[in-house]
Each structure stands twice: as structure tokens, then as C-alpha cells.
Amino acid sequence: MSEKAIEKLKFSGVKKSFGAKHVLNGIDLSVAEGKSLVIIGGSGTGKSVMLKCALGILRPDSGSILVNGGETVNLGHSERDEMMRKFGMLFQGGALFDSLNIWENIAFGLVQGRKMNRKDAKEIAIEKIKAVGLKPEVAHLYPAELSGGMQKRVGLARAVATSPEIIFFDEPTTGLDPIMADVINNLIVEQVKSLGATALSITHDMASARKIADFVAMIHEGRIVWHGPVGDLDHSGNAFVDQFIHGRADGPITRRTA
């Protein structure tokens, strides 16, 4: 990453434990403005916890998380709500609201979070539905009536509807067939570029990581063990990265720790 690049999001010494289990052991990482960083790592290595700490859903035990240079750990309710307006998030399972139809789901942040009138919010929602490759007719369907791939598209539309500055993607291609996964990857790249947003994603899917990342970081046992441009991934010289990207059972990552 260029030294001159503006740091949009920066983790410094972030630690988080649940009881005796230390999940994050001092995360140091930053994402430059307008860049896409993908965090890779095995299950249970702390990827999701790191994302939730950045979103303010979990509070780190220690360390600092800066957004646009401002500290976000220990913010009050109103400052936290204000900061959340900068964020968009695509959840692994979509996390669409069952009781609302598709356009209401997409417009939720606009109507409830920003008090936009429903008519204007609906127009934006329909635009976003088209932008993620769905037909406007799905606007009045409910989440349960859509396939997994369609739900991911709706989740993406909801994540970008408020034009956030930073978008988080939690395992965006999990549970999708390879073709649909590639469609979602393309949509993610397209939407992030069109908004000029900064993106932080976590994934196991190396095809997805290669497609959507400018930079990749590998997390293992709650620490960043490698960080570099996506082009360096195949010759990182890091044993953890090599084992992970090639999916080998033998290497420094054992089944106990993965």
C-alpha cells in the first residue's frame, strides 16, 4: 500500500477475548481510501470478530480502530449512530428482514435510519434492484420467496443503498454456486467502484478474494500474519498464505487451530 495513501480504516493493537479464549491478539491493519482489502483465514481465526469490532457490534478489549482518522472505540450512542451512516454491510446469510418486502428491505436504512420519505426511498430501492441485475418485479416479493443468489443481490443492494463510504462484506459468496459467486463478485467490484467506496471483506473463497481485492491480509490465531497486494499472493513467501491458498492439509496451520 502506498505510504501516501489516506488511511480510511485503521486497526492498531486490537484485542478481543471471550472468557479465556483470545480471539484477536493485537490486530494491526489499515485500508486506504477507495481500496478493497480482503482478509483471508481459516474458520475460527477471528475474521468475523474483527469485522464486528470495526462495525461497533462488538467492543474490543483494547486497541484502537480509526475511521477517517477518528477513534471509534468507546463512542457514545449518538456518535456511534452517526458513524454507522458511513458504513454498509453485506451479511453472510443476507440478514434480510423477513417481515418486510424486498424494496422495504433495501430502503430500510433510508426510511428508518435517515427519515427519507417512502416514495423517494422506493425509487432508490428500485434503482438498486436493477443495478444488482434483478427485475423490478421482485420489489414486492418477500425474502423467503427468493433464491440464495437473489437474496445475496438484495443484501448487496441494501448495503449500497445509502451510498456508504466503507462497505463490509462477510463471506459474500458462501453457499453460492461458482457461476453465481462470480456474478456476485462482479457486482461487488462494480458497486464499490461506482460509489468510490472503501471495502473490507472476509472470505475463504480464493476466487472471490482474487476478484474483489486490491490488497489481501491473512489472519491466523488472531494476528495478521501477511499483508500485501493481491498480485503478490502467489509469491508471498509466507508459509501460512501458501498453505491456505493452495488448500493443503500439511503446513503450519493445523486442524486444531484452523
Binding site: 462495525l55 457490534i57 458504513f87 446469510g93 440478514a95 428482514f97 430500510f108 436504512g109
Partner: peptide, 22 residues
């Protein structure tokens, strides 16, 4: 409980809506 398990409550937070209020 279902909203908690399916991350819908976390989604409310990320959409600037306080789950306690909503």
C-alpha cells in the same frame, strides 16, 4: 431470537437503527 440468530439485529445496527428503539 430468530432475528438474533440470522444476524437481522446486527443488520439493524449497521443501518443506523437502534434495535432497542425499533
Amino acid at each position: 431470537g430468530t432475528m438474533r440468530v440470522t444476524e437481522q439485529i446486527d443488520a439493524l445496527t449497521t443501518l443506523s437503527v437502534n434495535p432497542f428503539k425499533y
